[in-house]
């Protein structure tokens, strides 16, 4: 079974001071663990460390273990840990379809098969026929859904959510939460979310850790 484990993970800032107490936790497949904390406490830094994106001016200790393998020293692209940010961060020079094709795992071969996989993902996101659209013409909610599909097409073994609903209108938030959590539960990947919104944690329905 897929699991994501953090073993005594701690990050030091530029001054050498610890950003938060060392974190040890295990996220089971299909479960969503929420890490809560005030802004500025280092939630995004923790996410960056787990994903392999930590800038050089931070120092980190502890291990990130994915399905029993220590991935702490692997580069980000080899970890197979997907990440969703506050912003969708769709590549502005590519169409919606090409954004998804960028994410789609390389083992799906052949132009027809890859096109079909992209079309299927758009369909699941309720965006059928959007393949040729410019990402800049999509609404915030549509972009967020494309970003999730792009991440899932890469077939991650674990998923990190960095306040993915914070930038959305409150009335859209509930829809998107249901969309995101529904999809990740179906895939059976462990999900770690950081947020400062208690509603996010409630909707996730998993364990809550406070930094």
């Amino acid at each position: 079974m897929n699991t994501l484990e953090l073993r005594s993970v701690a990050v030091r800032g530029a001054g050498g001071n610890l950003l938060f107490r060392p974190v040890t936790l295990t996220v089971a497949a299909g479960a969503v663990t929420t890490i809560m904390g005030a802004s500025g406490v280092g939630k995004s830094t923790l996410i960056n460390f787990i994903g392999g994106h930590l800038p050089a001016d931070f120092e980190a200790e502890g291990q990130v273990v994915l399905n029993g393998h220590d991935v702490t020293r692997l580069p980000a692209e080899a970890r197979r840990i997907g990440i969703l940010f506050q912003d969708a961060l769709l590549f502005p020079h590519l169409s919606v379809g090409d954004n998804l094709a960028f994410g789609l795992a390389a083992h799906v071969r052949g132009r027809v098969a890859r096109r079909a996989a992209v079309a299927a993902a758009l369909d699941q996101a309720g965006l059928a026929g959007f393949a040729d659209r410019d990402p800049a013409t999509l609404s915030g909610g549509q972009r967020a859904r494309v970003a999730l599909m792009r991440t899932l097409l890469a077939e991650p073994l674990a998923l990190l959510l960095d306040e993915p609903f914070a930038r959305l209108d409150p009335d859209r938030r509930a829809d998107l939460r249901a969309f995101v959590f529904g999809h990740v539960r179906d895939r059976g990947v462990p999900v770690l979310m950081v947020s400062h919104d208690p509603d996010d944690a409630r909707a996730a329905g998993g364990p809550v850790v406070t930094l």
């Binding site: 960056n48 994903g51 392999g52 994106h53 800038p55 580069p75 980000a76 692209e77 080899a78 197979r80 840990i81 997907g82 990440i83 940010f85 912003d87 961060l89 590549f91 960028f102 994410g103 795992a105 390389a106 792009r150 991440t151 890469a154 991650p156 990190l160």
Partner: peptide, 16 residues
């Protein structure tokens, strides 16, 4: 350039 653009691509498995 938003550094997260690069991170998003890396998280999708794209090498440097």
């Amino acid at each position: 350039l938003d550094r997260r653009m690069d991170r998003a691509a890396a998280a999708l498995g794209a090498g440097p």
